[in-house]
């Protein structure tokens, strides 16, 4: 008989794995990715391809260079690349998209210790970097269903400008409007988000609190129609389901998720109503990322039966 293996219990493990979770996130993002190709044409696929390729490649090379274990197989870089792509306008120069991916993986994730250790969401931080570095191309939005890439204003810009014509609410829901690749089609994002909740990957708490807060504040600020537009416009649905639920950078406890969601909602609304930028989703999530360690500390569970 061969030597018997000795190990500390438990001797069985659940089937859940990191790559399985990431694969579920990718599956959940597929409807939005497909919608972006239908709405903005084949160039969407190109942007997604470039972002994913550069994200995965830069993760692989970075881990090779700093001589740690190569963990590209966990698919997390793929998720980051995909998310970043969905946050970019379709007309973005490809070299800028590639640079954004490398920044997300190397600077935001890798330099802080890799998966699970980064305090800020890589895709969001990269998008903000690009917004500041390449303001022109990052805010040049293309009209939907236009093969010749005519430029258009986003609904949020239109809301701010007042008087500019807005797409109908139905078009808003289906995503027939100007905006980033993946943020426009609320329907596709909802399908993906519900899939993630159903699979137990994310909890409903953050998205519901986030979108709910924006809705209620907008209702108070501008009435029902305004509130519906606010919810469907910009990157709110994408951010609430896919970026405010990132494991590494958001709280782990249920009440922490509530604080995170409500906090994001308040900051987003404040920026949208009073700020000079039309959109505040990225900034709000990044700001809440920063205080996440404190939220986790405040909401640490009390041990059952523990003495004070």
């Amino acid at each position: 008989m061969e030597k018997l293996k000795i190990s500390s219990s438990p001797h069985i493990w659940s089937k859940k794995t990191v790559s399985g979770i990431m694969l579920d996130v990718i599956i959940a993002l597929l409807p939005a990715a497909i919608a972006s190709i239908l709405i903005f044409g084949y160039r969407s696929a190109l942007v997604i391809g470039v972002c994913v390729t550069f994200a995965v490649l830069s993760e692989f090379l970075f881990q090779k260079i700093i001589k740690t274990k190569v963990l590209v197989g966990d698919l997390s870089a793929c998720v980051t690349g995909l998310l970043l792509a969905l946050n970019l306008p379709v007309s973005i120069p490809l070299w800028q998209a590639a640079l954004g991916s490398v920044f997300a993986i190397v600077v935001v994730k890798g330099l802080f210790g890799g998966i699970g250790k980064n305090f800020a969401n890589p895709a969001i931080t990269a998008r903000i970097m690009m917004l500041i570095a390449f303001t022109g191309t990052m805010t040049a939005f293309t009209a939907p269903l236009s093969p010749d890439l005519t430029s258009t204003a986003t609904p949020l810009e239109a809301l701010k400008a007042m008087g500019t014509e807005l797409p109908s609410l139905k078009d808003m829901f289906l995503g027939i409007r100007g905006g980033s690749l993946g943020e426009t089609c609320a329907l596709a994002l909802l399908i993906g988000g519900i899939y993630l909740i159903f699979r137990g990957i994310i909890s409903w708490t953050t998205p519901v609190c986030y979108i709910g807060t924006v809705f209620v504040l907008s209702l108070i600020y501008g009435g029902m129609d305004f509130a519906l537009y606010q919810v469907l416009a910009g990157g709110l649905v994408l951010g609430a389901f896919f970026m405010a639920t990132d494991y590494s950078t958001t709280p782990t406890r249920p009440w922490g998720k509530v604080i995170f969601g409500v906090g994001c909602g308040i900051i987003t609304s404040a920026i949208r109503f009073y700020g000079s930028y039309p959109e505040g989703v990225s900034f709000s999530i990044l700001l809440m990322n920063i205080i996440t360690p404190y939220i986790d500390k405040w909401t640490r569970p009390t041990p059952i039966g523990g003495n004070k």
Partner: peptide
């Protein structure tokens, strides 16, 4: 592999540890 901060362990601990 590295912890991804998913919180499953904290959520599942019967004694909330």
């Amino acid at each position: 592999t590295p912890c991804i901060n998913c919180g499953s362990c904290i959520q599942r601990c019967p004694l909330h540890l």
